[in-house]
Design a protein around this nucleic acid. Structure first.
Length: 446
RNA sequence: GUGGUUGUAGCUCAGUUGGUUAGAGCAUUGGAUUGUGGUUCCAAGGGUCGGGGGUUCGAAUCCCCUCAGCCACCCCA
């Protein structure tokens, strides 16, 4: 009989307990922040019809995981081709189009895995299966909604312990205007954005070179963007920016929109210095229509963005005759975990158990079970030892699992109605009346 | 998708110009220590040398193919 080699599919991972425990703590921080801002939970299927997923993002078609069945059955027709979801935004748009009863504004958060068929690269926090934590507001045009998304992003990253991050802010309208100013040919818009976006990677000369290769007037583009960068940053001069774009309407509208969002975000508590107006931010080339934003860490430039989002007022109309304004962001759980790991701020934890009740002898089993039940009733996380092993082995287990307390109740303790309680960290051991065990532990672990 | 690089024990790695039965540290298990962890000492278990083919008297070592991991690009979370 040939053994099957145990392995995981490329770009997917197992999360063993010591990694999952702190990872879940991160999720909890994100979810609590989302709830504080008044977002309600949503979950959608991992599998969607392919036409739903491809409706608006042809660019990424090749990254969508299509599901192929080994044997064709009635379901497997062109109309019912299915795939794993690529992001959470498109399914959200589908949901909003599908359920008329949802309130306006509709504020939902969604924390679920998505799948992309690109090449994994752990150092950059890229996987084929990864978890997105989305928060979106639908049904309002207000820039306050965009600003709230920025404040939320700022709050989450701060709460997770990031000291040095930049939320970059720009606008699709602004970029469209720039593109018009530089090249009259509208078809160059996406190329223009793509070139811009490379600045921090290849520098000004590199960007100018890219412009040339894409038949965009390179020197004009470079000098305009460079000047806009000078008036941007953490204390942007929006008046100066307006002068630079002259009378271009789209650019002027974009700047105004950026200005309003920027100011509101600061009022909502985003620290000055964390938020930057950055003319080279381009982002998603498909469905964004207004403000766009993403978060990067200056200390880890190789890592992609930790968060990314923007306004996408046209997406719901892909699935409905009614159009619904929408803005939101995704926070990349795996990017965050990767970043914290590289910053040495992600600490593994083998166990969440607080108390191990050691097994001294057969005669003490009933006592142990009663103790465990009592401690668990008070909310403590408790393990009992199942076999007749030496104390050494049991303590060694507690030590390796970093379980802080071990309770021992042998014949001596039982005779006096007591238990011995050892704190493995301080190495202090006390013998106390059995009736005081629960309260003592609760107090010490609080 | 493009280019590069690396595959030897659970992990990190050594392995001479190709030459007996492929090693070390850590980890695991047992013992020294039958009422108590981390240190120390002793011992044991654990290897299709990524897989397949070829060259050779002989391959972990050389050649070809293939698979996988990693890195950069593309793109993004």
């Amino acid at each position: 009989m040939s053994r099957i080699e145990p392995r995981t599919f490329r770009g997917t991972r197992d999360f063993l307990p010591s990694e999952l425990i702190p990872r879940r703590r991160i999720v909890r921080v994100i979810e609590e922040a989302y709830r504080r801002y008044g977002f309600q939970p949503l979950e959608t299927p991992a599998i969607e019809y392919l036409d739903i997923l491809t409706g608006k993002s042809e660019e990424n078609d090749k990254l969508i995981y299509e599901i192929r069945r080994a044997r064709g059955d009635a379901e497997e027709t062109a109309e019912s081709a299915i795939a794993l979801r690529y992001d959470l935004t498109v399914p959200l748009a589908r949901v909003v189009a599908q359920y008329a009863e949802l309130p306006r504004p509709f504020k939902r958060y969604q924390i679920q895995p998505v799948w992309r068929a690109d090449r994994p690269q752990p150092r950059q926090g890229r996987y084929r299966e990864f978890v997105q934590c989305d928060a979106d507001i639908l049904g309002t045009d207000s820039p306050l909604a965009d600003a709230e998304i920025l404040a939320l992003t700022n709050e989450v990253l701060t709460a997770l312990g990031f000291q040095n991050f930049r939320i970059r802010l720009s606008s699709r309208k602004f970029l469209a205007g720039l593109s018009e100013l530089v090249t009259s040919d509208e078809s160059h818009f996406f190329d223009f954005c793509r070139c811009l976006d490379k600045l921090d990677k290849i520098g000004w000369d590199g960007v100018e070179n890219e412009f040339s290769q894409n038949n965009i007037p390179a020197q004009t583009a470079r000098s305009l963007v460079a000047e806009l960068m000078n008036v941007g940053g953490t204390k942007p001069d929006f008046e100066a920016a307006r002068k630079l774009v002259d009378t271009n309407e789209a650019a002027l509208n974009g700047i105004s929109e950026i200005e309003i969002v920027f100011r509101a975000a600061l009022e909502l508590g985003v620290s000055e210095g964390n938020l930057v107006f950055d003319a080279t931010l381009a982002r998603g080339l498909d469905y964004y229509t207004g403000p766009i934003f993403e978060t990067v860490l200056p200390d880890l430039p190789h890592l992609g963005s930790l968060t990314g989002g923007g306004r996408y007022d046209g997406l719901v109309a892909t699935f409905s005759k009614h159009s619904v304004s929408a803005t939101g962001t995704t926070i990349g759980l795996d990017r965050i975990q990767t970043a914290l790991t590289q910053l040495k701020q992600f600490h593994r934890e083998p166990s969440e158990t607080q108390v191990l009740i050691a097994r001294f002898d057969d005669a003490g089993v009933s006592t142990n079970l009663e103790l465990a039940a009592e401690l668990r009733r008070t909310g403590l996380r408790v393990e009992i030892w199942y076999d007749n092993d030496r104390m050494k082995k049991q303590f060694s287990y507690a030590d390796q699992q970093k379980i802080p307390y071990v309770v021992v109740c042998g014949p001596d303790e039982r005779a006096r109605g007591e238990v011995s309680l050892k704190n493995l960290q301080t190495q202090q051991q006390v013998t106390i009346p059995r009736s005081e065990l629960a309260s003592t532990l609760s107090k010490n672990l609080a």
